[in-house]
Amino acid sequence: MREPVTGSVIPSDLYGFAERLTPAERAVITELRGVLTERVHPHLNAAWDEARFPEEIIAPLRELHLMDPPALREAGEGVREIFLGFRNFELTRCDINVATYYNAQASLFRTVCTMGGSAEQARELDAKIASYELTGVFGLTEPEHGSDVAGGLATAATQDPETGDWTIDGAKRWIGGATAADVVATFARDTADGQVKCFLVPTHAPGVTMEVIARKASLRIMQNAEITYQGVRVPDSARLQRINSFSDVAGCLRRMRSDVAWMATGAMAGAYEAALAYVARREQFGRPIAGFQLIQEKLALMLGNLTAALGMVVQLTEQQAAGIYRDEDSALAKMYTALRLRETVALAREVCGGNGITLDTDVARFHADAEAIYSYEGTHEINALIVGRAVTGVGAFT
């Protein structure tokens, strides 16, 4: 079969958006793709089927040092936002679970520590996070509060006026990777002033209990936990000093939503490429189904969704790199790319026919896991309301 027309380092990047990467950045992305193909992908379908996390993929990902790639340092280059975007794209192009696992440390936890910590905390924590000396996850969502967590967050933190220590009581839910992490960046409401604060709570601290959420139909590889805090004591040094209200939390979320938009875009590429490979080898009525008009129309729609999404996230990233961060920008990108992802994985499943509901083509995995991206880091509806408020000047959340 003829190779897709593209001059990009990314096979399905029809318009060549990845040409914005430097040669050193492209080399890192290419190396990442090779590791994902050879050392990560072979473990995914069995792990997904068994709803377990494959420990075999941890070392290959850590050995790449993707948070501070040696190849970029050797080239005299810093780690640019556009590189981080394509890093997320490539991870998710392989698998949504893999990207979610990686970003629990490299995006969510790292962002809250660097943005939420004091200058001294951020400096010390960032080095430990990049080297995996310290592993952590982001604990915001609660059993009874997801979309309304800004006003409804119920986990409470009370400071002892004599010792300065804090006591935390409450619960968190859907916290990915918590059972394997050293600490949970736990958001709790200060009982004294009613403001949201953030604490690095050790996962083995007395009073912390965790249970892995079972029977999931999406994101089955990722181990999401429900966490209960009962009289958990932490010193004041465990509090991130620059998280003093939910508006500070929102500043972190504003940055992280763009990561999720990149992940949705990468997942489109993974599903599209898996479907393209399948139709090239699948024959019906005596010839490959890649030559059927209805199949080609679906492939064109998938590629159109992917290309539009890439254009959106690249522009958003370049805008943010220039220092422009607006809630409505990241919310629009997350909302749109997640919606188009849903359509793209459905089309990919369609062109694979009955075989598209098995794990063998990879399409079924993307199809199911897309539902998680559609819901996390702000549902479609919440992100739409953020955009709606910006364009009309009227909030419609309640």
Rank of each mutant, 00 (worst) to 15 (best):
A51F: 05
R52L: 09
A396V: 02
R2W: 04
G177A: 05
G85M: 04
N103W: 06
G16F: 06
I382V: 11
E162I: 13
S245L: 04
A75K: 02
N305K: 06
L301A: 13
K216T: 10
R389E: 15
A368F: 12
E56V: 06
T158S: 15
S131V: 05
G116H: 06
S247P: 00
T155M: 14
A205Q: 11
G207C: 03
A264V: 00
R257V: 00
D13W: 01
N45V: 12
F138P: 02
G164N: 02
E371K: 10
L301F: 11
R189C: 03
V351M: 09
H145C: 08
F397N: 06
P23E: 12
P288F: 10
A280G: 13
P11Q: 04
T358H: 09
A192W: 04
G251E: 15
Q121R: 06
A331I: 00
M302L: 08
D329M: 12
I386T: 12
A214M: 11
E38I: 04
A99Y: 10
A127W: 02
R389A: 14
P206H: 08
P11F: 10
V212S: 04
T337K: 03
Q159M: 15
N383H: 05
R365T: 10
I227K: 05
A238H: 15
E162P: 03
N97L: 06
Q284S: 14
A331F: 07
S258A: 15
I10T: 06
M115I: 11
G136V: 08
A261S: 14
A51E: 15
M302F: 08
W174T: 00
A331K: 00
A47L: 07
S237V: 14
V183Q: 04
A171T: 01
L84H: 05
